[in-house]
């Protein structure tokens, strides 16, 4: 498009890429995890739940700090990075994906878990009585019945990954095309007084967030109409 600098476009594409990859992986992880957490109740499942939910409460700088240590050559991230000949997971797209996964995990797990809870054990037990395998029960009964939770999880994961800032700032290294996502680019533009570009990104973010909330509330309204 005319008038949009290439580095803004680059940051936008990178951000969307990150959000799509993260959301895809999150939903894949969150579906079985939420299912496992939803029933039956065990005290140690509450522990797992609490650990998953930590990013809701922790400042992103705390998460970023630990990730910086974990990604280095002496941490687990360094061992993984050695698989493809790098020495750290920081400053790379892979590193951002891992950071975003951890950060957005509660936003993906909780809505799905709540949906499974709301569904209750009854449909699952009926399916079992009728001879369906647990796996078949999961993807033919549970997931279709919890689809609103799944959609909410997708929207929230996507939105939170787009809006991620603190972690990326600490582990990203601000590399164009690799780790300079929109939120960091906006920060850079404000710092270097590129007000026009900053306004463009900030305005776009406001629009995007507004649409996200609108989408979520319309989903919830439909759900209410459905249940009443």
């Amino acid at each position: 498009m005319k008038g949009i600098p290439t580095d803004v476009i680059e940051a936008t594409i990178l951000t969307l890429e990150l959000a799509v990859v993260t959301t895809g992986m999150l939903v894949t992880i969150a579906l079985p995890l939420a299912w496992w957490l939803a029933f039956p109740h065990r005290w140690w499942k509450s522990m797992v739940n609490a650990v998953i939910s930590l990013p809701l409460v922790l400042p992103p700088s705390v998460l970023g700090y630990y990730l910086l240590l974990a990604f280095g050559p002496t941490g687990p991230g360094g061992w993984i990075a050695r698989l493809w000949g790098a020495r750290t997971l920081a400053f790379s797209f892979h590193g951002l994906v891992i950071g975003s996964l951890l950060y957005a995990l509660p936003f993906a797990v909780q809505p799905i878990q709540n949906a499974f809870h709301a569904m209750g054990r009854h449909p699952v037990e009926s399916a079992a009585v009728l001879g369906a395998s647990p796996w078949r029960t999961f993807y033919r009964i549970a997931i279709p019945m919890a689809w609103r939770g799944v959609v909410t999880a997708i929207v929230l994961s996507f939105a939170h990954t787009i809006g991620e800032f603190g972690i990326v700032l600490m582990i990203g290294g601000d590399i164009p095309g690799q780790t300079r996502v929109l939120s960091v680019a906006l920060y850079d533009y404000v710092e270097s007084a590129r007000w026009h570009d900053a306004n463009m990104i900030a305005g776009g973010m406001v629009m995007f967030s507004f649409l996200t909330i609108l989408l979520l509330s319309s989903l919830q309204n439909r759900k209410r109409r459905h249940t009443s």
């Binding site: 240590l69 280095g72 050559p73 920081a90 290294g173």
Partner: peptide
């Protein structure tokens, strides 16, 4: 973002 953070990136072994 600052020299402190630059040092941090090196001290943590990432750079």
């Amino acid at each position: 973002q600052s020299v402190s953070q630059a040092l941090e990136l090196i001290q943590s072994g990432n750079a």
